[in-house]
Design a protein around this nucleic acid. Structure first.
Lengths: 190, 190
DNA sequence: CACATTTCAGTTGTGCGCAATTTAGTTGTG
DNA sequence: CACAACTAAATTGCGCACAACTGAAATGTG
């Protein structure tokens, strides 16, 4: 190959294939199109998620919270004390993620964990005074985030609707893991 | 405190505030509205990203790849051999993420890393035969993912356009980190 | 009542993402 | 030529996400 790394033009984040120009029937697409398309779907979501994370990281640094810790605090501010299990249901996170995260929040003095007396298996997470007080500072966060997205609220609404729809569909699809191909897949070099 | 954890109704993923019913002027919104809005924005993207990851994990298990490893392979299949730096520019990942990831791909026999003779600092990543061959199997992936999203291509296109727009805006916004409030922010109990 | 099953938190291990630092090689300037 | 400034990759450290497992407590069934 005649690749000249040092002279190469700048590598753009991704190729600009216009999806609206692409055949609606997936089985009509070429192998190249398929892999490019895929690259765009998964990558754009991946990149968007990380870009959001980056902005939140900057904004939340003032509160001493990470992005997932902020999500947990949002749930607690809205619902008050909750067992770990229910925090996990709100955020779709399991104890493997929440246990150490809550331990850090407790070490930071924002929450307190107590074994439930009714069910000794369950641990209820309470806000401390400091944790409750932090909400006042958190009120400034959303405005800065919305501003950073550069989108009007109407488009944020559209984005959110689509994201929820995709998430619901993906969560449902995860159940039939061993899904075989419903169509004849002979695109791969016959 | 009348909470009865064992009898509580199922905790839904998130409250259903309708954004289109909310004042367009951010400064008109109540503190509660703002925090709920933020909770929705950040959570829906976070959740969507993880839901995608879950589906990819299942589909990619057959190829022996993780989700980020698949992204790297997509770049290599499309562009051929590339220096680490340029892979990182395509995916917005730094060497801290890519170095160990590429080491694993190399251990798996999919890529080969070679110091560039022109610039001894640079490492060029090549596909091995096995790595190139894996592309044939990867051709089946996109169809299964698109099917799992449950969305028609037109909506995927809309979603992608919005995600790209948000990402671009967020990346740009990250530059002015110390952004002071442009509006009078007196919502937080002065 | 005894015993299998289920449920909840927690732990372990792997991999990713990012900040900060290190090491080696390149380039710019006097 | 010498030396500062820059660059690429790797490394270290921390936190998150998830699978797999452990241990304790509750529940179900014979």
């Amino acid at each position: 190959m005649s690749a000249e790394p040092t002279t190469d033009p700048i590598a753009l984040p991704d190729p600009p294939t216009d999806l609206s120009q692409v055949p609606v029937d997936l089985s009509q697409m070429s192998a190249d199109q398929l892999l490019r398309l895929d690259s765009q779907i998964c990558f754009s979501l991946h990149a968007a998620s990380r870009a959001f994370g980056g902005v939140y990281r900057v904004v939340l640094k003032g509160l001493g919270l990470t992005y997932p810790q902020y999500l947990v605090m949002l749930v607690l501010w809205e619902h008050g004390e909750l067992p770990v299990k229910q925090i996990g249901e709100h955020l779709r996170l399991d104890s493997g993620t929440l246990s150490p995260l809550l331990k850090r929040l407790e070490a930071g003095g924002l929450v307190r964990r107590e074994r439930s007396s009714e069910d000794e298996r369950s641990v209820t997470v309470h806000l401390t005074d400091a944790g409750a007080d932090l909400r006042a500072q958190a009120l400034r966060v959303p405005h800065r985030i919305v501003a950073a997205t550069g989108l009007p609220l109407a488009e944020i609404s559209t984005l959110q609707t689509l994201l929820r729809r995709v998430t619901a569909a993906l969560d449902a699809a995860e159940l039939d893991t061993a899904c075989p191909d419903t169509t004849d897949q002979d695109a791969a070099t016959p």
